[in-house]
Design a protein around this nucleic acid. Sequence first.
DNA 1: CTGAAAGCGCTTACAG
DNA 2: CTGAAAGCGCTTACAG
Lengths: 354, 354
Amino acid sequence: MSSSNSKTTPAKIIRSTSEFAAYVGLARTTVSRVLNGQPGLKKKTIDRVQRAIEETGFVPNAYALHLKGKRPATVGVCMQNIAFPPLVQKLASLHRKLRERDVTTFIEIVEGGDSTSIIRHFLSLRVDAVVFMGYFDEDRVAQHLRGLSTNGTPSLVIDHFGIKGANTIYLDRARGMAALTNHLLDHGHRRFGLLGYSETFRSTFERERGIREALAARGFSFEESTMNLDHKHDRGRDFEYGRALAHSFIESKRLPTAFIALNDEIAIGAMHGLKERGLGVPGDVSVTGFNNQDICLMTAPSLTSVDQRVDATIDVAVDHLLEHIGQPLRQRTSVRMIEPLLVVRESTGPARLK
Amino acid sequence: MSSSNSKTTPAKIIRSTSEFAAYVGLARTTVSRVLNGQPGLKKKTIDRVQRAIEETGFVPNAYALHLKGKRPATVGVCMQNIAFPPLVQKLASLHRKLRERDVTTFIEIVEGGDSTSIIRHFLSLRVDAVVFMGYFDEDRVAQHLRGLSTNGTPSLVIDHFGIKGANTIYLDRARGMAALTNHLLDHGHRRFGLLGYSETFRSTFERERGIREALAARGFSFEESTMNLDHKHDRGRDFEYGRALAHSFIESKRLPTAFIALNDEIAIGAMHGLKERGLGVPGDVSVTGFNNQDICLMTAPSLTSVDQRVDATIDVAVDHLLEHIGQPLRQRTSVRMIEPLLVVRESTGPARLK
DNA sequence: CTGAAAGCGCTTACAG
DNA sequence: CTGAAAGCGCTTACAG
């Protein structure tokens, strides 16, 4: 089956204003003026060009326009990957909000590729700013940031905390974990199992600090209150990992009254692991996740988690970008913290009394 | 804290080959030759330019290069949204595989925006092909395809079946559902509850056809074998929707022995709904999902589902694109079917005997 | 309304 | 190795 190419379709495909002007039967200059909505044109001329546009589907060459200075504001977004739902949400939100401000977003995904060539590509496209989103190799990013800086291009790092000289917007994970810890303390929990906290490539350190400080504020010692059995397992799929960790805790005979998991998947795995061994959530053990993904609602019991507040984060990002686009590079770097939101659900409750 | 701008950083930001040539102290022509790796240059000259590149971070303007005919192959991908995990997987896979073939991907997300302006943008960028991915308004896409066709730009529609004149790569949902139905028939199921099949904007029709044909092949009537209570609910969040549908079926006193859900989320909701009313899966009711997302493994029991075979789909897409890029438009449209993969897990088993 | 011209940043022959 | 020139597709003064 082929598409029907009927009468109105011109034989020739038009790719430049000269060709287009010839097709319309007007001067190149005149056509250009119509295209740019300049005054002093007869209605009839405008209509003629308009009609020809519809017939031919002609669109001026963006590359030539760019050279003439008619370029939309553009931002290059460098994503580490797009396998992680909260990251994809941020990307979608950023893209949408920038479009509302007439900023074009170029998206590139590193994921096994060469981030250096991506940055070069953005630079060759003369983007007005570069955004990094995801968990990168810190040295690599720091190096890119230096390159961008000497190039005069503003940059922004979302959610990767602690890169030197980086404009950063960062979810205050410490604060989120402190809120979570306080919630559990309020329920009488005193012994906590940490699930997945020996990870190094994620921003685990900040999270641990939050737990530590919340415990200290109530007079508890982190070392005495928490347990970690991560070393017993190779990190695999999060869900299976959480399940195996729960089993290990049960077998260790030192089962805490609450599990604090690195993310929702591990938490859900742990809930399964507990259930398989006849333990109830939150009756026997309370369980918490992180990220507040949709699946938190799909488990029984539903999962207490910490929300990343994607929209708030991206609002701040967009404001930052708009402020810096087209401006000379500031020498001061800015670091903005976003406060996460604790979402309490059914998986957390009063600590079981021994 | 500010980033350190040390000795090697030039005061001036270099944005053109002329400026760069002046900086190096060579002719523009010579610099250009080095940049393009042309022969007949002294090692010393090459090194000099190389060093200057490192010092200044100069990257030639992609827009000017494009005008001179030095343009990488590019594909524009128009995504309906990126909220749906299998869709995001396809995007990531397509992006990666095209990059491996040195094709640059421009990604745009419609999602409440104006798809016409996106197509215009792609056209102005003179992309070599446009890919549509997601569930679009058919008339709108058909119109875009016509525009692209008169423009001489190849196009490809992934996973939206039945658009006239469209090069299509399509998951053969009918076949997947037939396999699923046969699996259930083999287990003795004869009464099926359809969950979410009254949806019209998704490719539900094809799926229903698969079920219908599988039933017919075994001598069963679709009308007598299936039940649908979708009309009792407003479609909300999939999970809640599935749960409510399960409740309705239980209350209707005509509970089928198997639920066939439109997607994994609805299936998982239904499993919860059954459990809440004291019914076991698959003991009392078997449940199937669609998409084979990660969450299929995170439920108890794990969920039988149909896998979209993202990689196979995208392999076919990449082959198609590579074949059509830079070629004159073919008049014949091609439609390629991908066979889905039934993944049997714990949520399906023998039908309960009455 | 038209036409010739300059120029955006590049590359590539073409003479030196 | 250098330099002047042409030209990619556009826009914008500038004279008709």
